[in-house]
Design a binder for these strands. Structure first.
Length: 199
DNA sequence: CTAACGATTCGCT
DNA sequence: GCGAATCGTTAGT
């Protein structure tokens, strides 16, 4: 276990971090089982001036509270009453930014992921999609607020260097309600990966 | 207390 | 392509 330092998440530009996280390794150890995957798709959400963000306009509620703490924590919430969506909080204390992880490419613990997902073969349906990857990695709301250097969930750097030309930049998914902010180019994915969610 | 609504996924057509 | 599933969060009565 060699987690990124928590200082990494204090960066003031959530859009920069959303891109920088591509290629890094998301790791969990839940129920004693290690599962890891390469981050292939992310979306940035900003707590100020972004109608798609739960904490927009500095809206502070029990659910969004963790986003207002200093960056480097897990923000996990239930979507549609069914899916646990995993986000990484960023920025300094008081500024509520977060990055939604939308897809990973399975790396270690693939048997465990298949088991959790009720599948027999690893293909993109295993971990492409925010609800899918959470289920595969065993992430649920019990991890809400966990620091990203905990023994249960963390992110590691990789040797791989990601070139700007390897990244596709586009609009976020499922945020039509955000009106003009739905047009912000704040979704990023590795264009070489098959593990990317639909559009 | 009540009601409306999702940062989605899956199965069926 | 379409619609159901399913429940915590939120805002309003």
């Amino acid at each position: 276990m060699n987690p990124l330092p928590l200082s990494y998440y204090q960066h003031p530009d959530v859009v920069h971090l959303a891109k920088d996280l591509l290629g890094k390794i998301l790791c969990t150890q839940i129920d004693g089982k290690l599962t890891t995957g390469i981050i292939t798709e992310t979306e940035a959400y900003c707590g100020r001036n972004d109608k798609a963000c739960h904490a927009n306009n500095n809206k502070r509620t029990a659910r969004t509270e963790i986003m207002f703490q200093q960056g480097g924590h897990a923000y996990v919430y239930l979507c549609y009453g069914i899916h646990n969506l995993f986000n990484i909080t960023t920025n300094v204390d008081g500024l509520a930014d977060a990055i939604l992880i939308r897809a990973i490419e399975p790396f270690k613990g693939i048997e465990t992921m298949l088991d959790r997902r009720g599948k027999v073969k690893p293909d993109k349906t295993l971990t492409a999609g925010p609800g899918c990857l959470s289920k595969a990695l065993g992430i649920d709301r019990r991890l809400y607020g966990s620091p990203l250097n905990s023994p249960f969930i963390w992110i590691e750097d990789s040797d791989r260097t990601i070139m700007a030309s390897e990244i596709t930049t586009t609009t976020r998914i499922g945020v039509e309600y955000a009106e003009e902010d739905a047009l912000l180019p704040w979704r990023f994915y590795l264009n070489s990966s098959t593990y990317v969610s639909k559009r």
